[in-house]
């Protein structure tokens, strides 16, 4: 299939995943009832289920899944490391520490917006710290130092997190663990709008970096000779991809595997040209997380399975299959 055909297919798949997501759930609805709910007709409780519960959830899954996959692809390019994923540079640790502090100090009780804001601030703190360390020596960002700084800052925040948890009461620990497993259950339209406010501009900026990232894949020096402002690209890519991740984490907690597996899967199918890889990763991530959420909601209904479990259970075998099929035929980098 040509890249254009892939794009068209994936856009249709996003629409399909959204439709499935508003149609399927714990409560059985007919297609007619689902459509009626969107036009404001039909039973009130069905309308609330479709428009207030399922639709914002589906849109949030599209935004966060797409954002995580795109950020993962950018981090893999930036760090030139196949193990890179959106949380590798300490964002999850920073966000989780912020969230748990908000829970432990009881802020999350009095103000419902305190937890996402605290998570976002924690992520920003981690991002800033990592960048300051990586650019400390001179103004150039060495990606190896960036990676090392990210992992170390992440470890530090994880230690803070464990410390706060160890002196917290059982209720805080429970809420914190649930938050860290990630969930789309909190999706409402305000959350969706806030996340969209970050995700859409960040996505455009990152996709705009595709050409310089292509050049930098050959080598930073070569890219520099060819007219790329390498330092600027690295900083913009790092900061924007991190903000994108931070917005997602604040809204849904930590959802693993999407940012690691989806970009690799897309790379195995369409190759390493970032002009295709970045937008297709966004679309594939959106489809993947939306469908994973449908499974998470319906598999053991009425109980919801943590979505991170589904992304791993479904994503890993799918990825291994792709990996095996392409072995030998595609060079990795």
């Amino acid at each position: 299939m040509s890249p254009r055909a892939w794009s068209a297919t994936l856009i249709l798949a996003v629409i399909g995943a959204f439709s499935l997501s508003v149609w399927l759930g714990s409560v059985d609805l007919t297609i007619r009832e689902t459509l009626a709910a969107f036009t404001g007709r039909g039973d009130t409780s069905i309308r609330q289920i479709v428009v207030e519960l399922r639709a914002p959830r589906a849109v949030l899954a599209i935004l966060v899944g797409g954002g995580l996959a795109l950020a993962g692809a950018v981090f893999q390019a930036l760090l030139r490391n196949p193990l890179a994923e959106p949380y590798i540079l300490g964002i999850s640790g920073g966000a989780a520490t912020g969230a748990v502090l908000a829970l432990a100090l009881g802020l999350a009780v009095s103000h419902s917006w305190a937890l996402p804001i605290a998570a976002f601030v924690g992520a920003l703190l981690a991002i800033t710290l990592v960048l300051r360390v990586a650019a400390a020596a001179d103004d150039r960002v060495d990606v190896r130092v960036l990676l090392l700084a990210g992992v170390v800052v992440g470890a530090f925040f994880t230690a803070c997190l464990s410390f706060v948890l160890s002196i917290s009461d059982a209720r805080t620990v429970r809420s914190a663990i649930l938050w860290m497993m990630g969930s789309l259950a909190g999706a409402d339209w305000v959350t969706v709008m806030t996340v969209a406010l970050y995700t859409l501009p960040a996505t455009l900026v990152l996709i705009g970096l595709a050409r310089p990232l292509n050049l930098m894949a050959i080598g930073e020096e070569t890219a520099g000779y060819l007219g790329t402002n390498v330092e600027r690209v690295k900083k913009v890519a790092y900061v924007v991809a991190s903000l994108l991740t931070a917005a997602g984490v604040a809204a849904t907690g930590i959802i693993g595997f999407v940012g690691l597996i989806v970009p690799h899967g897309v790379r195995l199918v369409v190759g390493a040209d970032y002009r295709m890889l970045l937008p297709l990763s966004f679309l594939a991530g959106a489809v993947f997380l939306t469908l994973a959420d449908v499974v998470a909601r319906t598999m053991l209904s009425p109980i919801e399975v943590p979505i991170g479990v589904i992304t791993a259970l479904v994503g890993v075998p799918l990825f291994l299959l792709l990996l095996r099929r392409s072995m030998g035929s595609t060079s990795w980098w």
């Binding site: 714990s26 409560v27 289920i49 519960l53 999350a108 009780v109 809420s175 259950a185 109980i303």
Partner: peptide, 24 residues
């Protein structure tokens, strides 16, 4: 964290829930 879909579909005129922070 009950399943809100099912809860809504039952059309209750009163839900009795746990007070407190765990499920704000």
């Amino acid at each position: 964290q009950p399943n809100l879909e099912i809860l809504l579909a039952l059309e209750p005129d009163l839900v009795i829930r746990f007070a407190g922070e765990s499920d704000r």
